[in-house]
Simulated scan of single mutants.
Amino acid sequence: MDQDEYGEGQATLGDRLTAAREGAGLDLGALAERLGVRIETLEGWEADQAEPRAAFLGRLSGMLGVSLVWLMTGEGEGPQDGDGLRQMLRSELRDLQRTLEESAQRIERLERLLGQE
């Protein structure tokens, strides 16, 4: 992907957001769920009908594997190549596995407590 194509003069925040989401292999529903926003909200951001708050911009850049500067201005590190995307997905997978393990431990603890009644 030619990063100049997404520079300040050529693309909007919504364009870059769409490109990053697609580069990460996510559909609108998946990204909206991960962010905790409605699909309509994300559609509005991608259509430049509204802009995400600063906290969401930071989360978006992390989730989509692009720099915050690129997302806002089109300069810097944009959508990742296949290897970078795989690395990002592996990291997310490890985070999810850790969360599942912690949840399983909580479930076991609660089951033990309930069994003591």
Rank of each mutant, 00 (worst) to 15 (best):
R53G: 14
G29M: 02
L114V: 15
R21N: 06
P52L: 04
R86T: 07
Q80L: 09
L96W: 13
E108I: 01
L13N: 02
A30L: 09
L35V: 12
A50P: 03
L110Q: 11
S67K: 04
A55F: 06
L31V: 07
A30I: 05
Q3D: 11
L28H: 05
G65Q: 10
S103A: 11
Q105P: 02
E22R: 10
V69R: 13
G62D: 10
V66P: 01
G82A: 12
R86M: 12
S61P: 00
E75N: 08
M1W: 10
R38A: 13
W45S: 01
D2V: 03
E33F: 03
Q116D: 15
L28G: 09
A24D: 12
L68Y: 12
A55V: 11
G65Y: 06
E101I: 14
E117I: 09
E77S: 13
L60Y: 00
V66N: 00
A30W: 02
E22H: 12
R109H: 00
R112T: 14
Q105H: 02
S103I: 10
Q3N: 10
G78D: 00
W70V: 01
Q3W: 10
L26A: 13
S103Y: 11
G14T: 03
Y6Q: 00
T12V: 01
I39W: 04
A55P: 03
E5H: 08
G76T: 05
A104H: 03
D4C: 07
L71S: 02
R98H: 06
L28A: 09
E92L: 10
E43A: 14
S61V: 04
A50D: 12
L110Y: 06
R38Q: 11
R16I: 01
I39Q: 02
L113G: 11
E40F: 07
A50W: 06
L64C: 09
